[in-house]
């Protein structure tokens, strides 16, 4: 017997979660596809479901004193797109997710909770060291999105925890983003790339790279990034950076694309990004 819980407060939700192993159901745009059985039939859930969209207190976008932006778990993409508090890079990424209709339903927290390697919103979150606040009856803990997602559909989440909010830092980098999908809209990502950087006096003072859909989770490697931070632009050798990433990008062949293409395009995008950083020099 499957139970369907519809709490209207966080407190109530936490109590339910403490006692039941549940799917946490927000916008549902992924779960409804995964659990779809057939037209006219209920979704085929194999364990209890906790619907959270009625928890109004989780619907917010707020800025704190340090300039960090807090996005409540039931906040939908269309609300994020429309908010003046949200850094541009997030909007750029979100505008290419699914379709306008789906963005009227889907949440950012849901995209994190779904932990798909093709989740587009994960790139800016991971690149910018965004955090999730997990809430449970025992209290709260804060974890980086990068550490929260362990693999395909795998999260560092205890059964009684829920994503309460996402905390993102204000934008301070220059970005280069490309999503490569099967078509120009409503496409599931074959490979995606987000690079961020900051240059001061010809020196690379910040340098970050993230790849989507090329591994079991978004690829970001701070060790490699650190090798290049504080280097002079002229000392950045494109081939050497590509060489550092080539083995970290380990895509698969599936019904959407093949591993050769994904790898090649990921490296092409990295090169393009590096060229942009170097201002077209060292071609």
């Amino acid at each position: 017997m499957i139970h369907y819980f519809v709490p209207s407060s966080l407190k109530e939700a936490l109590k339910i979660l403490n006692e039941n192993d549940c799917y946490i159901f927000a916008g549902g745009t992924d779960l409804m596809v995964q659990k779809h059985l057939s037209s006219g039939l209920l979704p085929n859930f194999d364990k209890d479901v906790l619907f959270i969209m009625k928890i109004n207190e989780l619907n917010y976008i707020e800025k704190d004193n340090e300039g960090n932006i807090h996005i409540g778990a039931t906040t939908r993409y269309n609300e994020i797109e429309a908010s003046s508090l949200i850094p541009e890079i997030y909007k750029t990424v979100i505008k290419e997710i699914a379709s306008p209709n789906i963005r009227n339903m889907a949440t950012l927290a849901g995209n994190i909770g779904n932990a798909s390697p093709a989740g587009d919103s994960l790139l800016p979150l991971i690149l910018n060291d965004a955090e999730v606040v997990l809430s449970s009856i025992d209290g709260e803990r804060i974890i980086k999105v990068q550490d929260f997602i362990l693999g395909v559909k795998k999260l560092d989440r205890k059964q009684n925890e829920i994503i309460k909010e996402i905390v993102i830092k204000p934008q301070e980098l220059d970005y280069f983003y490309r999503k490569v999908g099967s078509r120009k809209a409503e496409s599931i990502t074959k490979v995606s790339f987000l690079g961020g950087y900051k240059i001061e006096k010809n020196r690379l003072v910040d340098f970050r790279v993230a790849f989507g859909s090329v591994s079991t989770k978004v690829v970001r490697n701070q060790e490699v990034e650190n090798k290049y931070i504080n280097k002079e632009l002229k000392d950045i050798d494109i081939d050497s950076v590509v060489n550092d990433y080539t083995n970290l990008v380990t895509p698969i062949t599936d019904q959407r694309s093949n591993k050769e293409y994904r790898h090649k395009v990921a490296m092409n995008l990295l090169k393009k990004f590096l060229k942009e950083i170097k201002g077209g020099r060292d071609e």
Binding site: R183, K184, A185, E186, I188
Partner: peptide, 23 residues
């Protein structure tokens, strides 16, 4: 639409993609 072992590999509209307005 690829075939693998006698079966179609693209069986949903998210995998077998037709042009949208912007394509």
């Amino acid at each position: 639409e690829e075939v693998s072992d006698g079966e179609f590999k693209q069986t949903r509209m998210s995998d077998y993609v037709i042009p949208t307005f912007v394509d």
